[in-house]
């Protein structure tokens, strides 16, 4: 019996030696993939920068401020697209922030019993899951026919304001802004709701205990306490709006102009990429890469700010 015990002990020892290497290898492999996730982001930045370099060299920062897209003479500038991206995102935020925060309040307060509230939360989440291209299809065949008469009315009554000084012809910046607002609304609602729900019950009770009404409590205690979380959600939504492609491409008209009128057709950086990339070559590809890099940079800044804000909220809790 004694030798066999020795035997099994030595086997154990061997096994633990082998398994120690297996452990180390396993941790190493997972660590490699963990770090690789972070490297993907850097790879995107690097690869797009390198391919954009010829265009950066040729056009410099003037690329952002000039309006030309001329494959024949190989001269490119993306001002209309940068402008369109900013304007459509701004319109989207203008509509979606108040409604989204309103939805978040509606879903974080106890207006309804949880049995009715939970399906509504689910439906709002579902809105975020509808593919962009479906919103685009819906935009073309449902929203544009609905909006064009309204746009015409605005043009006829308020046409002297530059904002409405073009005749709406169907697709346009305002349609894109509205579709974007629908698409980012669930993001704002969901993140704001999380921030609102995270406000400690004690603060709510303190305000009620002092004789505040529900809405006085919301405006003076709950919203201020949840403010940075809500701003984080709005920033994330802004990042999404700036990068959103398909729905915008399908309803904006893809005109290479920067018009002050929201009823006019326009384009965004992402719609430019969607329309031109597959058939481009040479310096045009590089210029598109440059445009993609600008879009990447813009969304990166917005997303990092959002992430830092949402994080600071999480740390406080």
């Amino acid at each position: 019996m004694v030798p066999s015990t020795n035997d099994s002990q030595s086997m154990n020892w061997h096994r633990s030696e082998a398994s120690r290497w297996l452990d180390k290898g396993f941790i190493g492999v997972t660590g490699f993939f963990g770090i690789a996730v972070a490297l993907v982001l850097l790879a995107i930045a690097l690869r797009v920068s390198i391919d954009a370099f010829p265009a950066i060299q040729k056009f410099g920062l003037g690329f952002i401020t000039t309006s030309r897209w001329n494959p024949v003479e190989n001269l490119y500038g993306a001002w209309p697209q940068v402008y369109g991206t900013i304007v459509t995102s701004f319109i989207a935020l203008l509509i979606a922030v108040p409604i989204g925060v309103g939805v978040a309040l509606f879903l974080s307060e106890d207006f309804l019993s949880p049995r009715i509230q939970r399906p509504i939360v689910f439906l709002v989440e579902l809105l975020a899951a509808i593919p962009s291209v479906v919103f685009g299809l819906w935009g073309i065949f449902v929203l544009i026919p609905l909006l064009t008469p309204i746009g015409k009315w605005f043009h006829e009554t308020l046409g002297w304001i530059p904002l409405f000084n073009t005749v709406p012809v169907g697709p346009g910046i305002y349609v894109a802004g509205l579709v974007l607002s629908i698409m980012i609304l669930p993001i704002i609602a969901a993140i704001s709701r999380d921030a609102l729900v995270a406000v400690p019950l004690e603060l709510r009770q303190a305000a009620y205990g002092l004789g505040a009404t529900r809405w006085e409590t919301i405006f003076q205690v709950i919203l201020p306490a949840a403010f940075s979380g809500i701003v984080g959600g709005v920033m994330l939504a802004l990042g999404r709006a700036m990068g959103e492609t398909m729905a915008v491409t399908m309803v904006i008209g893809n005109a290479n102009v920067a018009s002050p009128s929201i009823l006019a057709q326009g384009s965004t950086v992402s719609s430019l990429l969607a329309n031109q990339f597959a058939e481009a070559s040479g310096l045009q590809i590089s210029s598109l890469m440059y445009a993609a890099l600008i879009l990447f940079g813009l969304t990166l800044i917005v997303n990092i700010l959002a992430e830092l804000l949402v994080r600071s909220v999480r740390l406080k809790l």
């Binding site: 400690p200 004690e202 603060l203 009770q205 303190a206 305000a207 205990g209 205690v221 201020p224 306490a225």
Partner: peptide
């Protein structure tokens, strides 16, 4: 209240 709950 039980736990001091000043507003932030």
């Amino acid at each position: 209240f039980q736990k001091p709950n000043p507003f932030p």
